[in-house]
Lab assay of single mutants.
Amino acid sequence: SIKEIEKEEIIKVLKEVNFNKKLASEILGIPLRTLYKRLKEYGI
């Protein structure tokens, strides 16, 4: 599903940037606030 793909992509990017959420949100092209929402939604 799209949610699974998105979750995997978020985890992959977070690992690449050593869990720097600000940098991860910039790489993913989403606002930091949205990233936090996704992390909560996906239980990351």
Rank of each mutant, 00 (worst) to 15 (best):
S1V: 12
S1Q: 12
S1K: 12
S1W: 03
S1T: 13
S1Y: 03
S1M: 11
S1H: 13
I2F: 11
I2T: 13
I2P: 14
I2V: 13
I2Q: 14
I2W: 10
I2E: 14
I2S: 13
K3L: 11
K3E: 10
K3W: 10
K3A: 14
K3V: 11
E4Q: 12
E4P: 09
E4V: 11
E4D: 14
E4I: 11
E4W: 07
I5L: 14
I5T: 13
I5M: 14
I5H: 13
I5C: 09
E6S: 14
E6G: 13
E6P: 09
E6W: 08
E6F: 09
K7C: 08
K7L: 14
K7W: 11
K7E: 06
K7M: 15
K7N: 05
E8M: 14
E8W: 14
E8G: 10
E8C: 11
E8T: 10
E9G: 08
E9F: 14
I10S: 01
I10M: 10
I11Y: 09
I11H: 04
I11A: 05
I11D: 03
I11V: 09
I11G: 03
I11R: 06
I11E: 07
K12L: 07
K12I: 05
K12R: 15
K12E: 05
K12F: 06
K12Y: 05
K12P: 01
K12H: 07
K12N: 08
V13S: 02
V13Q: 02
V13F: 03
V13P: 00
V13H: 02
V13M: 04
V13K: 03
V13T: 07
L14R: 00
L14N: 00
L14F: 04
L14A: 01
L14H: 01
L14Q: 00
L14P: 00
K15G: 07
K15C: 12
K15H: 13
K15A: 08
K15W: 11
K15E: 08
K15S: 08
K15I: 14
K15L: 13
K15N: 10
K15V: 11
E16I: 09
E16H: 09
E16C: 11
E16F: 09
E16S: 14
E16D: 10
E16V: 07
E16M: 14
V17E: 02
V17C: 08
V17P: 00
V17R: 02
V17W: 03
N18C: 11
N18L: 08
N18A: 08
N18W: 07
N18M: 08
F19I: 01
F19P: 02
F19W: 15
F19Y: 14
F19M: 06
F19K: 02
F19S: 04
N20M: 04
N20F: 04
K21S: 09
K21G: 08
K21Q: 07
K21N: 08
K21V: 15
K21C: 12
K22Y: 09
K22V: 11
K22H: 09
K22Q: 11
K22D: 04
K22R: 12
K22T: 07
K22P: 06
L23V: 08
L23M: 11
L23F: 06
L23T: 06
L23E: 07
L23H: 07
L23D: 04
L23G: 02
A24G: 02
A24D: 00
A24N: 00
A24L: 03
A24E: 00
A24R: 00
A24Y: 01
A24M: 03
S25R: 02
S25Y: 01
S25P: 00
S25I: 03
S25E: 01
E26L: 14
E26T: 10
E26P: 02
E26M: 13
E26W: 08
E26R: 12
I27M: 09
I27G: 02
I27F: 05
I27Y: 06
I27N: 03
I27P: 00
I27W: 05
L28C: 02
L28V: 02
L28T: 02
L28Y: 01
L28M: 05
G29M: 06
G29K: 08
G29L: 04
G29I: 02
G29E: 05
G29Q: 08
G29N: 09
I30T: 02
I30V: 06
I30A: 01
I30K: 01
I30M: 11
P31E: 09
P31V: 04
P31G: 08
P31D: 15
P31R: 06
L32G: 02
L32M: 08
L32W: 04
L32Q: 03
R33Y: 12
R33W: 12
R33K: 15
R33D: 15
R33E: 15
R33H: 14
R33M: 12
R33F: 10
T34L: 13
T34A: 09
T34W: 06
T34H: 08
T34D: 15
T34V: 14
T34Q: 13
T34Y: 08
T34N: 07
T34F: 06
L35S: 00
L35Q: 00
L35N: 00
L35V: 02
L35A: 00
L35R: 00
Y36M: 15
Y36H: 11
Y36T: 10
Y36C: 13
K37T: 07
K37H: 09
K37F: 06
K37R: 12
K37Q: 15
K37W: 08
K37C: 07
K37M: 12
R38M: 15
R38H: 13
R38L: 15
R38G: 03
R38Y: 15
R38P: 01
R38T: 10
R38Q: 11
R38I: 15
L39R: 01
L39S: 02
L39E: 01
L39P: 00
L39G: 01
K40M: 12
K40C: 11
K40D: 08
K40W: 13
E41K: 06
E41M: 07
E41C: 06
E41S: 05
E41T: 04
E41R: 06
E41F: 07
E41D: 09
E41A: 07
Y42T: 04
Y42Q: 03
Y42K: 03
Y42I: 10
Y42L: 15
G43Q: 09
G43T: 05
G43E: 09
G43P: 03
G43L: 06
G43S: 06
I44P: 04
I44Q: 05
I44C: 07
I44K: 06
I44H: 05
I44G: 04
I44W: 10
I44F: 10
